[in-house]
Design a protein around this nucleic acid. Structure first.
Length: 574
RNA sequence: CGGAGUGUAGCGCAGCUUGGUAGCGCAUCUGGUUUGGGACCAGAGGGUCGUAGGUUCGAAUCCUAUCACUCCGACCA
């Protein structure tokens, strides 16, 4: 591509509304432009990278035996009503009506459509297992789109769905997809980790997320420091502390604490160690539960894990905190003075709380706390469960080492759905015995547009983007100096442009007019992240050399004109 | 959804307090000089000041409504 015939839309100034580096650089390098909140145009430069990501994903999916299909973005409400998600999904599902006032949604995912398709097409166990994928535009009406294309409302996703008779077959394909995903992210040049994950609103049994490690990530991942255990903190199990509950050493006393409404004020104002404090969170109880509310006890320095709490049979799903009025009506004291002693509603204690002695908590009287509380002596130990987020230093759930917490960007997610959708939509086949069985399903997603942002988040410097070779919009930036003035430069540059393209490189030759100074060309090519730069100059020609510089190199080097292809072949990891 | 903030030229911003008919930098266009790290000179084009009402002789500026965008929060015991 000649730069003079390509839209290069670089900007010097950092856009004021872009917070994370990938968003800033995607705008500055001219990859994307915002149309409205969470909606983006992809400019020619950005699209080149997007297409390369898609190509790698497609190749690896094909290699893994999946078949490409294409489903509509707009889906009929009936299918979603059949699965039950028309009611469950909430406002993130964009619902639209057609001219006949029939209801549709813009697809955030395609379980319903694919299941409907396959229940019509596949009738026999002999056709299974089968795995179908598409690369297609999705829409999720996010509460708060942000970080550019990282959390946009419309985005491109590779979604795949596999169909099976039996869990064993599902597990096999799941493993194949796990491997395929690792191959994909390796080829994309990303530093990633597969981690155990919660299945969330999609539903199902077993699941792994693939995270690109980056400080700007929105998810916390727990890693063991001495094994390969890795899990989303939403899921990572917080083990009970080792050892027995310590015997009481303090009497329980009631203390006036008019200024302590929070754990922090209790710790600072009354000299209580934070690991000897317990906070009491009141949530709405599940319908089948006798009580209206449930109290959840978590140590002062720990955080409630809402997903774990939601899974408790006594707790209403989705999790809902009681309002202050509700708390006052039931307990007689306000938030800030709550505790397990003399609490008129059922409690569930976190495992760590259950192993804490001599602790302090609210007295269920405004402005009073109890210090030196001990289980058994002062109040019966209630039901115990794992309801908190793991923290750094916790023992690893696999029994090996301690946990370290890092931030990650979720770029892929694989699930074993089981029969959640196939049962709801009656997706059945005949097995070997001629008996009707419900198919098992797996589903496998990759956020293609998000991958582009994640790659930048992980690969950049002050000068701009540094693309991994495999997804760079161009591999080589060929920069002729004095292209308009020197016949020798023009001849050689044109020749090299032909040669490089013939050798299979995506090359952009910066032949922009003489008003575009060399400095501008260097800065633009750096910002755009082109991995290899070759400069053709009159003084180089005189010496019979070209100048080569890799995007990550600090020094440039001269190479003989005749050696260019060989040097590039060595430098590039295509 | 709750809270805060911002809308003035393609981009980044000033002007608003104290009302008098819009300005700066970058970008763009023309001509010229430059040409190895975001050049210089001269000239030019481009804005119904988010929208709609109101106050006023007069509104970017004051008032009301509305729309859009951005940020923060949705863990409080």
């Amino acid at each position: 591509m000649r730069a003079s015939q390509f839209l290069i839309s670089t900007v010097k100034e950092t856009p004021s509304d872009a917070e994370v580096i990938s968003h800033q650089l995607m705008i500055r390098a001219g990859l994307i432009r915002k149309v409205a909140s969470g909606l983006y145009n992809w400019l020619p430069l950005g699209l080149r990278t997007l297409r390369k990501v898609e190509r790698i994903v497609r190749e690896e999916m094909d290699n893994a035996g999946a078949m490409e299909v294409l489903m509509p973005a707009i889906q009929p409400a009936e299918l979603w009503q059949e699965s039950g998600r028309w009611e469950q999904y909430g406002p993130e599902l964009l619902r639209v009506n057609d001219r006949h006032n029939r209801e549709f949604c813009v697809g955030p995912t395609h379980e319903e459509v694919i299941t409907d398709l396959i229940r019509r097409e596949i009738k026999s166990y002999k056709q299974l297992p089968a795995n179908f994928y598409q690369i297609q535009t999705k829409f999720r009406d996010e509460i708060r789109p942000r970080f550019g294309v990282m959390r946009s409302r419309e985005f491109i996703m590779k979604d795949a769905y596999s169909f099976h008779v039996g869990q064993e077959s599902l597990q096999q394909t799941y493993d194949v997809m796990h491997t395929a995903y690792s191959n994909i992210f390796n080829r994309l040049g990303l530093d990633f980790r597969p981690v155990l994950a919660d299945t969330g609103s999609i539903g199902g049994a077993k699941s792994h997320e693939f995270h690109v490690l980056a400080s700007s990530g929105e998810d916390d991942i727990a890693f063991s420091n001495s094994s390969d255990y890795a899990a989303n903190v939403e899921l990572a199990e917080a083990l009970a502390p080792a050892g027995e509950l310590a015997a009481p050493t303090q009497e329980m006393v009631t203390v006036d604490t008019p200024n302590a409404k929070t754990i922090e004020e209790l710790v600072n104002g009354y000299n209580q160690p934070i690991e000897k404090t317990v906070k009491t969170l009141i949530v709405v109880a599940a319908e089948e539960c006798e009580a209206e509310f449930i109290a959840l006890l978590v140590r002062g320095d720990h955080e409630l894990n809402e997903i774990k709490a939601e899974k408790l049979p006594q707790v209403a799903s989705p999790l809902q905190f009681a309002t202050e009025e509700q708390i006052r009506a039931v307990v007689g004291a306000g938030p800030g003075s709550l505790g397990p002693v003399n609490l008129p509603i059922p409690c569930i204690a976190d495992r760590t709380v259950a192993k804490t002695s001599d602790f302090s908590a609210g007295a269920n009287i405004d402005g009073k706390h109890l210090f030196g509380i001990n289980w058994g002596r002062d109040v019966e130990l209630p039901e115990v469960a794992d309801i908190r987020n793991v923290v750094e230093g916790d023992p690893s759930p696999d029994g090996q080492g301690e946990l370290v917490i890092k931030r990650g960007i979720e770029v892929g997610h694989i699930f074993q759905l089981g029969q959640k959708y196939s049962a709801a939509l009656n997706a059945e086949v005949l097995d070997q015995n001629g008996k009707t069985v419900v198919m098992d399903m797996g589903c496998y997603g990759i956020g293609v547009t998000r991958v582009v942002a994640a790659a930048i988040e992980q690969n950049h410097d002050e000068g701009g983007i540094i693309w991994p070779e495999s997804i760079a919009p161009f591999n080589v930036a060929l920069i002729p100096l004095n292209y308009d003035k020197s016949e020798e430069v023009k001849t050689l540059a044109d020749q090299l442009y032909q040669d490089l393209r013939a050798a299979g490189y995506d090359v952009i030759m910066d032949d922009r007019d003489k008003k575009t100074s060399p400095g501008v060309k260097f800065a633009d090519m750096d910002l755009m992240g082109i991995p290899h730069r070759v400069v053709v100059s009159p003084r180089g020609i005189e010496a019979g050399t070209l100048e080569y510089k890799g995007r990550r190199d600090s020094e440039k080097q001269d190479v003989a004109i005749a050696d260019l292809l060989q040097v590039l072949a060595e430098k590039s990891s295509r």
